[in-house]
Amino acid sequence: MAFNKGERVNLSSAEVMLACGDPEGLNILAEMFHGFGVHTPRRCLSLVEAKTSVQDRMLNLMVVDSALSDAEGYEFIHWLRRSEIAPNCYAPVILITGHTKPSQIFRGRDSGASFVVRKPVAPLVMMQRIIWLLNDQRKFVTSPDYCGPDRRVKAVGPPVGMKGRRHDDLSAQVGDAKTPNLEQDEIDALFKPKAVSG
């Protein structure tokens, strides 16, 4: 996940919500985002506070720990994605996990997190994830089973042997040509240098 350290980021007007059930952990996150240039990150210790923040403000980024004081971060993200509180329900969410089993990574992804990051989260790592999110072109999916950014990060089409469920899924089969092949002199003409008059 390479990026240019000389690249400029202006987070001064970004509305960022930070949610973590541990006061000291929340304080570290807040200091990190102050350092990034965020003026007033919204601090939430509990699920209730996080929900209130989503209802009260237009947020640009949410960073959520898997452990809130009264619930799990997954629960908040699951609620957020189905809340229909636009545009917040579409905003990027970075989920931070502490003690992490592979099942929790999948749980975070399936709850609708844009990214899952394991602790310890150094500022450089967090900034890399933010910059990745700036270039995130994934579409948003709503369905009875899942709401959140498309979980397919790479657009490589449907699995081999399957038709695909999306209207823009391309088939791996190459169809018959619809126009005649180019003649050799037409191909040569594409490479032949020509003087430009004028």
Partner: peptide, 22 residues
Amino acid sequence: NRLAKIVSAPGGRTVDQAVKAA
């Protein structure tokens, strides 16, 4: 991507400065 729109506004700091400040 509203975050991208906000972050690309003039001003701010370089990634290096932001990480060091954090």
